[in-house]
Design a protein around this nucleic acid. Structure first.
Lengths: 303, 303
DNA sequence: GCCGCGTGATATTCTTTGACTATCACATCG
DNA sequence: CGATGTGATAGTCAAAGAATATCACGCGGC
């Protein structure tokens, strides 16, 4: 039994004539006859009574045709579901974002992406790179916004922009008026950083090796740069933040942002997704949307 | 898209592993892979995400699999309906019977046939041979009980039994005490018969040509031999009835039944059905049931 | 860090299936 | 009685579906 046979059966039932039914099915009459015979044989039941003059349904044939129609309708719904799903910009996109990017990029990103792909709701997971990598691989998220370096088998990576780091000190700090600060100078201060589960802390430590030598650094619990910013404002020390975390929105009278002396340390932000994730258009829409945001301290990479 | 592809898709969705799914479908893994690819291609949608390590459903894939299952369920119901219909002794049998047989045979036939085929309800149409032939050919009835001669293209005929004719006269009639009456003698009397739409009247007229010469004969309106019997009881004339119409059940003090002198005229009763009517078992059950009735004046024919 | 294992994809071959054309057998109708 | 229209049958062929053999690629153990 296959869908063609059911389609032919319904056609014969409606036309009550093999030739006309065959025409309607775009096949020859013998092909139709043998198809119906094959189905009747397989089902072990006579569906039609053929006299020379006319075709009629047997009692059981009537029930079978009715049910065959139901099968064909449900099959048609498969096609219609597929039609709906054809647009890659339709359907939930599960997006992972590292803690040190999410709060500073998502508020701007979401409206832009929504304008570009209005039928693609986001489900956002904010976490660490390690966690997001695992969830990316097991399919719990589809695309991740993270900082390089990052590589993983089966995972595609698209670098998007570079973002400089900046020093944040209390407003009353002796560095508050400085034009720029060298990385080595950070060794003089207590530098508050997120714990080492966060790539950003490691990148700061790498860019400013002197920081690592100061005891008490890098011990902050929690996952939020905002906590650190508050601690700095309260005079617990200084910190280094990515530029997007220092946009006007986060300005405070208690804090001063001071750039690094050139070359300022920075991180490269990228998208990552499973190579097998089929919705390239969705990834592209996300990348384009991120590129159109004008974020402070950010240099776009060529597409 | 065909049912196999849907079946394979559901299997992969359940196993989340092409090899195991292929095994469950009794096909090779490559065959499964290509089948799924073909379906995805046709639908223009990716159903599964294949990483080296595991298979998972895309968003649209989940909906498609669910719908595919629905299609398969409905297809399975086609098979189950066919299974039910496989028994030819299940389902309505539309039976046509001529007026001069129905009232005398059906009351005995129905319980016997019901015992033989309890799941085969009868729909009975009582009519003339001409009308029944038309209804048989256009499918309004399936099998007909009638009197020979009868032949029609595409119609199968099975003779069942011979039934003698008998003369019926009022109890006070001068023939009431006779042992037998010759056909020619009927010319002496007013013989009441059904109108010529009924084969029985014609057969009587043929067996007793003298009857035709008496004016006023064969004019009875209506389709019932009982009307004629009542007319005879009331003294309007005499008549000829088939033996089954004279069983004990219909005996009356006002009437006497007198046999013809040998060789008594008779009619041959038969079944007729469309050659294309597939339920030979149902016809056979009907024939066997009729043979087991012990009807008066009836001689069974060899099967 | 390399090798073996398990995964799905691909290439090639072969069988099966579905469809075509040509033709038949049969009933109907002028 | 021949013309017409019906579904069935015969013979042929191309396309679909499946099998075997093999590949490419992650992963996990040593």
């Amino acid at each position: 039994m296959n869908l063609s046979e059911l389609r032919y059966t319904v056609a014969v039932a409606q036309e009550r004539n093999f030739r006309r039914a065959a025409e309607r099915c775009f096949i020859s009459q013998p092909a139709l006859s043998t198809a119906i015979q094959k189905l009747e044989e397989e089902l072990g039941v006579q569906i039609f009574e053929r006299s020379r003059t006319e075709v009629s349904l047997t009692g059981i044939g009537e029930r079978l045709v009715e049910q065959a129609q139901r099968v064909l309708e449900e099959a048609e719904r498969v096609r219609s579901i597929a039609r709906e799903g054809r647009d890659q910009l339709v359907g939930v996109l599960r997006l992972g974002v590292i803690h040190t990017i999410a709060p500073y990029v998502l508020p701007d990103l979401i409206p832009v992406l929504h304008a570009r792909a209005p039928e693609m709701p986001l489900e956002v997971e904010e976490s660490t790179t390690a966690q997001l990598e695992a969830h990316l691989k097991n399919g719990q998220v589809d695309v991740v916004i993270l900082a390089l370096p990052f590589a993983s088998p089966g995972i595609e990576v698209l670098p998007l922009y570079d973002e400089v780091f900046e020093v944040v000190v209390p407003a009353a700090h002796r560095w508050a008026r400085k034009r720029a600060i060298g990385a080595a100078q950070l060794a003089e201060e207590r530098v508050l950083l997120l714990n080492s589960g966060h790539c950003f802390s490691n990148q700061v430590a790498e860019a400013c090796p002197e920081v690592g030598r100061v005891p008490g650094n890098g011990m902050t619990p929690g996952n939020s740069l905002e906590t650190i910013r508050n601690m700095v404002a309260s005079g617990s020390g200084v910190t280094v933040l990515p530029a997007t975390a220092n946009s006007d929105k986060y300005r405070s009278a208690l804090l001063c942002v001071v750039p690094f002396t050139a070359p300022a340390p920075s991180r490269r932000v990228a998208l990552a997704w499973r190579r097998s994730f089929g919705r390239e258009k969705a990834v592209e829409a996300l990348a384009q949307s991120l590129r159109t945001l004008s974020l402070p301290g950010v240099t776009l990479l060529p597409a």
